[in-house]
């Protein structure tokens, strides 16, 4: 909670107003959707598969243009497409999207390279961060030599170096096995404590959303018109043990009840 009040005075890191979108000839995925993400906040969007989460991220990352509404990133009144061109967003897609022909070092340096940093300087900055991310000694390896969890770490490092203040993480751990996922969640929490960037995290895993976030936004109905909100009042820093806390169980019950209610048709109830 402390983090939320701390940043409540500043301009939001991300502000979405009246967003509408549909693919040609298909029903609306989003209708007049509005929400804000504060500076330094870790927010999860919890939603069932196929509801349009990835589409939302592609709009925020400037890869798709919404039919109506504005997306403001940072203090400037930028459209999402402009912000992404300026490298203000670190987008981490569901797949790790590592280039098989590049080493860990050069994969992680991609974003810096594209923003005009010299290759030497880019490599130096990657090498500096590798140990802190548990990637020490992997710099000369190719992606196919790494495990799924390690690949996601490299992918995250690439977003971290390529983007500015706002990070969009699209179900980054959904393809990992349960054990690796838990260790990656704890890893992300540690890294976030170090860097304190604003993170918007998509997931369909209730436990994951609660463990990581300051706030959980729930999208249940289609088209998405509102996101109902749950403040996660668990203390930080957190580890996976937080999931055993009675307060965690209580929050999980609230979330599940809400999801159950919206699924059974009584949509729009705020948690």
């Amino acid at each position: 909670m402390a983090d939320l009040t701390r940043s409540s005075q500043e301009a939001p890191a991300l502000s979405v107003r009246g967003l509408s979108f549909s693919f040609p000839g298909q029903p609306h995925l989003f209708k007049e959707l509005s929400f804000d993400i504060k500076q330094g906040e870790f927010v999860s969007i919890l939603a069932a598969s196929g509801i349009g989460k990835t589409t939302l991220f592609r709009m925020l990352a400037g890869l798709l243009i919404p039919q109506a509404g504005t997306i403001t990133i940072g203090t400037q009144e930028n459209s999402a497409a402009e912000a992404s061109k300026q490298g203000k967003i670190g987008y981490m897609p569901q797949k790790d999207c590592l280039m098989p022909w590049r080493t860990v070092l050069d994969n992680a340096a991609l974003g810096l390279e594209l923003s005009g940093t010299s290759k030497r300087e880019a490599r130096r900055r990657v090498l500096e961060l590798l140990p802190g991310l548990g990637l020490e000694g992997t710099e000369r390896k190719y992606p196919h030599e790494l495990s799924g969890g390690m690949r996601q770490r490299v992918s995250f490092l690439r977003s971290l170096l390529g983007g500015g203040e706002l990070f969009l993480l699209d179900e980054p751990f959904s393809a990992l096995d349960a054990m690796t996922r838990v260790s990656m969640q704890e890893w992300l929490l540690q890294v976030w404590e170090q860097h304190r960037k604003t993170i918007l995290f998509i997931t369909h895993d209730v436990d994951e959303a609660l463990l990581l976030s300051d706030r959980v936004l729930v999208a249940a109905e289609s088209p998405i018109t509102t996101l109902s909100e749950l403040n996660v009042t668990l203390p930080r820093p957190r580890s996976y043990e937080a999931a055993l806390d009675p307060a965690f169980i209580g929050l999980k019950r609230q979330l599940l009840e809400h999801l159950g209610r919206t699924v059974s048709g009584r949509a729009g109830v705020t948690v």
Binding site: S84, G111, G163
Partner: peptide, 11 residues
């Protein structure tokens, strides 16, 4: 997807 990612990085 790699191309899209590169575009978000300003490629």
């Amino acid at each position: 997807d790699i191309g899209a990612l590169m575009k978000t990085m300003g490629a």
